[in-house]
Design a binder for these strands. Structure first.
Length: 269
DNA sequence: AAAGACACCTGTCCGC
DNA sequence: TGCGGACAGGTGTCTT
């Protein structure tokens, strides 16, 4: 489910409710997520939440006794509810706060994760080797060109590779390629610099706009207050079984690396 | 090193 | 209605 804008939306929604809260109680209903929830998480009882940051699609929750590292996988979401409110379906973790509120982690498919780090979470094995943030200056035309130079595979797979650049999943990859007029199948090492420049610009634009709209809700993504994100109405090609909004030709769909790719064969070359 | 297939899991939708 | 199959926002791991 969640790509960078959805994770960023989640982090922003969490902060006002979670910062400075003491973890009065930690309930784990289903420890079997993508990896088993480590025992160390239970030791965070009575710790205080000091900061919440995002790196790639990971949520880094700093407490006075170590970090919770969350990943929402394909179907994960977080809700802030009164601690007395009933559990939504597929609620796997419940953090009770000292003020009577609670954070619920909900994840039907259980591809998400809750990990622990007692040091710098950026040094965590899963995080340390990731590529730059797409909205940072480190992600620029020169960098992307350097990455593409050594890749003969399709450009869509390159921009979805978190070791190249983080945060771009299937939706925003399709949308960015549409905006920049690039065919998703194009081999990365055959794209000229001026077009990579357009792709970098499109990625930044799409992600920034999606964050402003609270992310994309297709099925189960909700913000921490239960509201949907509104970027779905801005999608040009993803999930579009009708016409290209630019040229009115049918949007095409095909499978690429086991993922659906949507594009316009006229507008994207 | 790069590329591709596969794994994990549940829910929903569509055609028969 | 029921059933089988395809599909869904991610990504680590294994094999080639």
């Amino acid at each position: 489910m969640p790509e960078l804008p959805e994770v960023e939306t989640t982090v922003r929604g969490l902060r006002p409710h979670c910062l400075d809260q003491r973890l009065a109680k930690i309930e784990i209903f289903q420890p079997r997520l993508r990896w088993p929830i480590p025992d160390a998480i239970r030791q965070l009882t009575d710790a205080r939440i000091e900061s919440i940051e995002r790196r790639a699609k990971y949520i880094l929750m700093q407490t006075s006794k170590g970090y919770m590292i969350w990943h929402l996988g394909m179907s994960g979401s977080m809700r802030i509810l009164d601690a007395a409110d009933p559990s939504p379906a597929h609620e796997h973790v419940k953090l009770h706060f000292s003020n009577g509120q609670s954070l619920r982690y909900i994840d039907p498919r259980r591809f998400g994760a809750l990990l622990f780090s007692d040091g710098d979470p950026l040094q965590h094995k899963l995080i340390a080797t990731l590529g730059p943030e797409p909205l940072s200056d480190d992600f620029n035309t020169d960098y992307l060109q350097q990455q593409c130079k050594k890749r003969a595979t399709a450009i869509k797979q390159v921009i979805m590779d978190a070791h190249c650049v983080v945060g771009i999943g299937n939706i925003y990859a399709c949308e960015s390629l549409f905006l920049s007029g690039i065919n998703p199948k194009t081999r990365a090492n055959r794209i000229r610099k001026v077009r990579l420049q357009r792709l970098v610009d499109s990625i930044k634009q799409v992600l920034a706009q999606a964050i402003l709209q609270g992310g994309t809700t297709l099925q189960d993504f909700t913000r921490t207050d239960g509201q949907p994100g509104y970027f779905a109405q801005s999608l040009n090609v993803y999930g579009n079984q009708g016409e290209c909004p630019n040229c009115a030709r049918p949007v095409k769909r095909f499978t690429q690396a086991q993922r659906s790719t949507y594009y316009c064969s006229r507008c994207q070359r």
